Simulated assay, not measured.
Amino acid sequence: MVEQRPWFNVCCHLVLVLGIVLVALPVWVALMATTHANGDFGTGAPLWFGELGLSVFRNLFTSSTHMSSSAVPVSRMLLNSFIMAICITIGKLVISIMSAYAVVFFRFPCRMLAFWVIFFTLMLPVEVRIMPTFEVVSDLHMLNSFAGLTIPLIASATATFLFRQFFMTIPNELIEAARIDGAGPIKFFFDILLPLSRTNIAALFVITFIYGWNQYLWPLLITTDTHYYTIVLGIKQMLDVNDGVVEWNKIMATTIIAMLPPVLVVIAMQKAFVKGLVDSEK
């Protein structure tokens, strides 16, 4: 029986409310900034609605957002970010689940060595190997292309490890039953393993989608053509104004828009995401 402690409950709720305020306050300030003219930012960040309303959002999608020496619509940057995020996500899931399947269910020489080589790449993130990766992408003529944006970020040791750990919990009786029923490796993979891995796939889909959507350093290095700018990179470029006024209301509006797709993905897959992270079978 849990002892009732009113003061402890009050303190927990206060901490929770404080955490919500700390997280939501920057978003609220950004939303309020979109409703004010640029001249209103001289006295500090606005905390209430201004006279512009939602007109800034409407202007972002009906005209071009000027960045540096060219103009790129926000809709184009959103499309680039979506293509990059979804390609990275699908690529990571496909490669990781197939490599984990091979390591767990097939017997071949040096299979564990292959797994540990994959696992050790966790110590070599993109930021560490960024120069040789850039040179390879450049030699393959993949600069300013979606292939260059996505392929170097597809491999994932973390997802491979998580799928391997889950596959190792599959009972041998299930494997033997599938073999007796005549299920070959491909049928076993598609008809048994994939349905059992739904929650794991959902959890990793959310994580990798957000990872791909928030990429900044890699697109900054390999894209010189503004037509391949992602939304995160575009926000940074909007701040680089040589002569003129920084349009804070447009920047804040673009920031709000950039936050919406990851939030919608988390909301849409919330149940499966949570279950995939806390499932007792893993």
Rank of each mutant, 00 (worst) to 15 (best):
T224R: 15
T224K: 11
H227S: 14
Y211C: 13
I251Y: 03
L233Q: 08
T224A: 12
L233C: 01
V246M: 01
K236R: 09
V246S: 01
G244D: 05
G244L: 07
P219A: 08
V232W: 02
E247A: 12
E247R: 09
Y229L: 13
L220V: 02
Q215R: 07
T223H: 11
F209D: 07
T223K: 04
H227A: 14
I235G: 02
V246E: 06
W218Q: 03
Y229T: 05
V232P: 08
W248D: 02
H227D: 15
G212A: 11
D240E: 11
D243R: 10
L233A: 01
K250H: 13
L233G: 10
G212D: 15
G244I: 06
Y228S: 13
T223G: 07
I222H: 00
D243E: 12
I210S: 09
G244R: 12
T224D: 14
V246L: 03
N249E: 09
I210Q: 15
K236I: 03
F209N: 01
T226I: 09
N249I: 06
N249M: 07
L221C: 05
N242I: 08
Y228R: 06
L217W: 06
W213T: 09
G244S: 12
L221E: 02
W218R: 06
I222G: 04
I231P: 01
K236D: 14
L233M: 00
T230I: 08
P219C: 05
K236F: 10
D225V: 00
K236T: 11
D225E: 12
V245H: 10
D225C: 05
T224M: 13
Q215L: 04
Q215M: 11
